[in-house]
Simulated scan of single mutants.
Amino acid sequence: MRDWLKAFRPATFRGVPFFVEVEEAEGGRRVAVSPIAYSDLHVTEDMGGQVRPFILSAYIAGDTSDVSTRSFVSALNAPGAATLILPMLGPVLVRVPHWRLSRERARAGYVGFEIDFVPAGLPALPFAAVPGALVIASLIAAGIDMIAAATAFRMRDVAPGQAAPSALAVTSAASRMTAVADASELTEDKRPAIADAIATITRLAAEPVAQASAIASAIVATVGVIADSASPAEAVEAFAVASVPAGDDVFELVSAAAFAAGFCQTLAAGDYLSRQDARRARDRISPVVDPVLDALSAGLDVSVNEWLSDIAATAASDLSAVAANRAPLVTVQTEISLPATALAYALYGDAGRAGELARRNSVATPAAMPISFEAIAP
Rank of each mutant, 00 (worst) to 15 (best):
A260H: 00
L273M: 13
P287Q: 03
A312T: 03
V241F: 12
V225C: 02
V332T: 08
T266M: 02
D277I: 08
R280L: 15
S309M: 06
A227W: 01
P328R: 04
D290H: 11
V292I: 04
A327R: 14
G270V: 07
D248V: 12
E252K: 02
A323Q: 01
D271C: 06
Q276P: 01
A227T: 04
S231P: 06
A298W: 08
V332Q: 00
G224N: 01
T266P: 01
D318A: 13
S320V: 04
R275E: 13
L267R: 02
R279W: 03
R275F: 08
V292L: 07
R280M: 14
C264Q: 04
S303N: 09
V250A: 13
D277E: 11
A238W: 05
A258E: 03
L253M: 15
A235T: 07
S229A: 15
R282N: 09
G299R: 11
A268W: 01
G262P: 10
P245F: 05
G270F: 09
V302S: 15
R326A: 12
A257L: 13
S320I: 05
S229R: 10
R279C: 03
A261E: 07
T314P: 01
T331M: 08
A327S: 15
A281M: 06
T266C: 10
Y272V: 08
F259S: 04
R284Y: 06
E252W: 04
A268H: 00
S303A: 14
A312F: 12
N325Y: 12
V250R: 00
S317F: 08
A281F: 06
D310K: 06
R279H: 10
D294A: 13
A238N: 04
Y272D: 03
D228F: 05
L253D: 10
G262K: 01
I311W: 04
D249K: 07
A258W: 02
I311S: 05
N325G: 13
A313D: 10
A295H: 07
D294M: 11
